[in-house]
Design a binder for these strands. Structure first.
Lengths: 102, 102
DNA sequence: ACCTCGTATGAAACATATTTCATATGAAGA
DNA sequence: TCTTCATATGAAATATGTTTCATACGAGGT
């Protein structure tokens, strides 16, 4: 693997290794949403959601679209669902206790 | 997605969001290796490799086998190759500048 | 029993990431 | 133009993760 991809991997995985951002991705599986809706659904401050959306957009895990004064965030399903599927398969096989590794 | 998987995701992705561990995984694609070999190949202190191998083992990205006084680390290809493939696909599609996102 | 090799470990030092809070920006309506 | 709503942003406060260094442990060989 080339030098560049290693760096890409790092940014890619760092972006999804955060509980707030993971929760955001999970929530967006239900459909596109604006920031306030996400903030309410996840029970977090708007500012925090906003801060955490940025890296998700930067790495294209989600896409934004302006709609008047709100911004609609939409999941990049292709990548995110594939990612979740791998974790599910892996966990099923290697984490029989349900995520709590010894 | 259940509460448990979200936590699993976090641990899973945290583990691979570190340059040393990513380099270790990449190196292990070439075949099983012991700690000293990894340390030399990656030009890092033995202690550091050892510390970083732990989370990789805990999450089963790699497996260990004792051989006399050395320990042979072996990649869990099923999970790791699948993971790399997703990043490659994603990067190709969304990071045309080669990992440097604007 | 002692020495050496390969590896692991704990804890301090260091580096990075996350959250919070106050405030700015920008679009739309009165 | 003034106000309000939705969102973004900067910087301090806080929390987490990583590396280093010194040392411990355990398996072989002598």
């Amino acid at each position: 693997m080339k030098k560049g991809l290693s760096q890409t991997c790092h940014r890619f995985f760092s972006t999804v290794s955060n509980p707030t951002r993971l929760a955001t991705l999970e929530k967006l599986r239900e459909g596109p949403m604006n920031v306030s809706q996400l903030a309410e659904a996840l029970n977090q401050e708007q500012s925090m959601i906003s801060h955490n959306l940025r890296p998700l957009v930067r790495c294209r895990f989600v896409h934004v679209e302006r709609r008047g004064r709100e911004r609609i965030y939409r999941l990049n399903r292709e990548t995110v669902e594939a990612l979740f599927k791998i974790v599910e398969n892996h966990a099923e096989k290697y984490c029989p206790t349900g995520g709590r590794c010894p």
